[in-house]
Design a protein around this nucleic acid. Structure first.
Length: 563
RNA sequence: GUCCCAGUAGCUCAGUGGAUAGAGCGGCUGCCUUCUAAGCAGCUGGCCGCGGGUUCGAAUCCUGCCUGGGACGCCA
């Protein structure tokens, strides 16, 4: 249980007591909010309950604060509490409780900060899902980093998480991709072939064609064109997916499952495909209508601003149809309790119809959350770098990682709220690479690690260190900051806001650097032996917290850093 | 035209209806005989886009406007 929740509980109990005592009478008590005051003089926690109660109770907030405070029965965590104008109650954590947490943290190890708000519910985080028609570029990278950190954190918060990549490999964009590779293949072998109008121009298309020539030879020229394209397409698709997988791996993004769109139309296991089942379900519910030869989903009736085509007059299902089948598969087929989709800003218009479709499938719309990762504008100095997959003129994930590095890249993307458009200046990111927040955090960990390795070198055993000696303000401040990770994990998981992680990491690093400056750990003075042991324990605990934080962000925790 | 996102320090951005609005970078001063100076201490820097409203209390909620970006297909 979080300390915050403990505080809330004792406040609630005190309010009830005040009610029973007849000194405060309110019909419905508001939710009890416990906040972290900005000003450390106001303690570790505060509640504004008296202020919120004042109107209903028709009483002076300070007076209410007094009446409630008197009835609070604090546990061992709390050193003191007091009413504060204009009507807060402030709580201060006790030093000896804080000191004992050092041992709790060490005992928890890499589980420290884990919570159980997910209560084991099955959640899918589906992200990136770039069409396998080209490499991953900068915009996708943001969603990739966001999704992986969010998935990590939700797992830490007690969800059973599946990370999934949806491979859109069944549509007309794929046809254009296949034809583009086919064209380059022919051209490379001296045949005069013309790139289709909607073809992909990037150099990688020719690279793939060249690889295919290496393994398959020129023989495909002899096949009838449709057969050649099918064969080329199959190989090219595999290669492209592999390329994407490698790219994402380079930035530390991995998936539990790669789900192919084509599977939605197969019916190997069930008697009917996911697609058939989903359409049948919509039809049963009266959500489909035929108009001008096409099959429409009546999404207006469910709150969207227009209806959407599911099956074209040509008989071909649309991308939306696949998506309906896919979500049917997620919720009904695989029984996820909750699904989080991370989409790029160019898909934000599709959220209402997807929500409508999900509810038409009999799933509570709130079980589907679509996070929109906003645009990334790329700059190189003053120049804006335009991103267009068609022309092949874009900065890829690969180039970005090569230039900026994986850790800095992840940190930079993570630190911004997903809903905000961001500007990424490559020049700046590279130039500032020696003194930036990434190194600040990692350096704190490296300093931490070097203390521990020196202790190991000297054979110092601090297992029996006495934590009650940790009374220096910087020691207690460090412990306080360390403990906040537990709250943070819950907050990130509940609000789906991984951008708090890097900011927390900065604060943790600051607290550690301050401790490092002011509290010599391994002392040469024999009189300080006991203190050395206690501080080593704190350093070991801090390392646990650094590692956990960096791991959640998917960043490395270097033991050494040297220029 | 409709809808979505944003506007906070010179720049890039945090900020959960609360108490004195923060960080990094930049700029200016200082600090290494002791566990890493990728650090620390100090200074500099703000009509929180503008106007109204709700509230005991608004950067935060509502509303109108301004500015910037995005989405509005039988493409994916």
């Amino acid at each position: 249980m979080l300390v915050k929740d403990t505080v809330a509980a004792i406040v609630a109990a005190a309010l009830e007591q005040a009610n029973r005592d007849g000194v405060i009478s309110v019909d419905a008590a508001p939710d009890i909010e416990i906040e972290r005051p900005n000003n450390p003089e106001h303690g570790d926690f505060a509640t504004n309950l008296p202020l919120r109660l004042a109107r209903a109770a028709r009483a002076n907030p300070m007076q209410l604060a007094q009446l409630i405070s008197e009835r609070i029965q604090p546990g061992p965590e709390i050193a003191s509490l007091e009413p504060a104008p204009p009507g807060f109650i402030n709580f201060k954590l006790s030093d000896d409780w804080l000191q004992r947490q050092v041992e709790t943290v060490i005992a928890a190890g890499d589980k420290f900060g884990s919570a159980d708000v997910g209560t084991g519910r099955k959640v899918m985080v589906e992200f990136v899902s770039v069409n396998p028609t080209g490499p991953v570029h900068v915009g996708h990278t943001r969603g990739a980093v966001l999704g992986s950190a969010l998935a990590n954190t939700m797992q830490a918060a007690g969800y059973e998480v599946t990370r999934e990549y949806y491979i859109n490999d069944a549509g007309s964009q794929m046809e254009a991709f296949y034809r583009s590779v086919w064209t380059r293949y022919q051209q490379a072998l001296g045949r005069d072939a013309q790139m289709p109008e909607n073809g992909y121009q990037g150099d990688y298309i020719a690279d793939i064609a060249a690889e295919i020539i290496d393994t398959e030879g020129p023989g495909l020229l002899e096949l009838p064109e449709p057969a050649a394209i099918r064969r080329i397409g199959d190989i090219a698709r595999e290669k492209m997916v592999e390329l994407i997988r490698d790219d994402l791996d380079a930035i530390g993004v991995n998936f539990d499952n790669w789900f192919s769109e084509r599977w939605l139309f197969l019916n190997e296991r069930a008697p009917t495909s996911d697609y058939d089942q989903a359409i049948a379900k919509l039809r049963e519910g009266g959500h489909l209508a035929e108009r001008s030869g096409a099959l429409w989903f009546n999404s207006i009736a469910l709150g969207d601003d227009r209806d959407n085509v599911v099956v074209r007059s040509s008989g071909e299902p649309t991308y939306f149809a696949s998506d309906i089948a896919y979500h049917y598969n997620k919720f009904s087929g695989r029984e996820f309790n909750r699904v989080i989709d991370i989409w790029g800003a160019d898909h934000q218009g599709h959220v209402p119809r997807m929500k409508a479709a999900v509810s038409a499938l009999g799933v509570k719309p709130e079980n589907l959350t679509v996070l929109i990762s906003q645009m990334v504008t790329l700059k190189r100095g003053d120049e804006t770098v335009r991103a267009s997959k068609r022309t092949g003129d874009f900065v890829t994930l690969r180039e970005l990682v090569d230039e900026v590095g994986m850790d800095a890249c992840r940190y930079f993307f993570l630190a911004r709220a997903a809903s905000t458009q961001m500007e990424f200046d490559l020049e700046l990111a590279t130039r500032e690479s020696s003194e930036n927040p990434v190194y600040y955090v990692q350096y704190a960990h490296a300093r931490n690690a070097s203390i521990l390795s020196l202790a190991a070198e000297r054979g110092i055993d601090y297992a029996n260190g006495d934590v009650s000696l940790l009374t220096h303000p910087n020691e207690l401040a460090l412990i306080r900051t360390m403990l906040r990770l537990s709250e943070l994990i819950v907050q990130v998981a509940e609000n789906l806001e991984p951008h708090h992680l890097p900011h927390y990491a900065m604060e943790l690093a600051t607290a550690f650097h301050h401790f490092y400056e002011n509290c010599r750990v391994i002392s040469a003075n024999p009189e300080d032996n006991e203190l050395t042991l206690a501080r080593l324990k704190l350093v070991a605990a801090a390392q646990v917290v650094f590692r956990r934080t960096l791991t959640l962000m998917g960043m490395s925790a270097p033991e050494r850093m040297e220029r």
